[in-house]
Amino acid sequence: MNENTPFSQTVGYINRGSLDSELTETLSELVQAVRDTRKAGSITLQLKVQMLSANNEDTVKITPNIKSSIPQHEQPQAIFWSTADGDLLRNDPKQSELDLKTVPANGANQNLKSIN
């Protein structure tokens, strides 16, 4: 049986427990986003282990790096017409525009009464 310190306990020691807290918070955020968007996400923990000094083979330093991929909601799309010079237009330049005017609500009702 292996007598090494459990990985979960070591993570709790790194940066006086702040790594464990950050991972807990990131996991909670990820789970909420997955439930909300119904899309997959991920968390990656990278632990860089290197010698603290060349003079002491017993001392190592561990540098954590957390990367997360939190799913996002789909953004609404917009449709534009493009021109040869790279401009974007909201309306189709090949379609003519009608000169429409807003009719006041009171005026419309009066016209209906006079017809009857």
Rank of each mutant, 00 (worst) to 15 (best):
Pro104Tyr: 00
Ala33Leu: 03
Asn2Ile: 08
Ser18Arg: 04
Asn91Met: 14
Leu100Gln: 10
Ile70Lys: 07
Ser53Gln: 09
Ile70Ala: 11
Leu27His: 02
Met1Val: 11
Ala84Arg: 07
Leu47Phe: 08
Thr24Gln: 08
Thr83Lys: 06
Asn15His: 01
Thr44Asn: 12
Asn56Tyr: 06
Pro6Gln: 08
Gln32Met: 09
Ala84Val: 08
Ala40Ile: 01
Ala84Pro: 09
Leu27Lys: 02
Leu98Lys: 14
Leu98Cys: 09
Tyr13Met: 12
Ile66Lys: 05
Asn55Asp: 15
Met1Asn: 14
Ser28Arg: 13
Ile115Pro: 15
Thr37Asn: 03
Glu97Ser: 12
Leu112Asn: 03
Gln9Ala: 03
His73Trp: 06
Ile43Tyr: 01
Gln110Ala: 05
Leu30Val: 10
Thr26Arg: 02
Ile14Asn: 01
Glu74Lys: 12
Ile115Cys: 15
Pro6Gly: 07
Tyr13Val: 07
Lys94Tyr: 06
Glu97Cys: 09
Leu112Tyr: 02
Leu112Thr: 03
Ser18Cys: 03
Glu25Ile: 00
Ile70Glu: 07
Gly41Tyr: 01
Ile70Pro: 06
Asn4Thr: 12
Asp20Ala: 15
Asp85Glu: 13
Asp87His: 13
Ser53Lys: 07
Pro6Leu: 12
Lys67Asn: 14
Val31Asp: 07
Ile14Pro: 01
Pro64Glu: 04
Asp58Gly: 15
Ile70Leu: 13
Asn106Tyr: 00
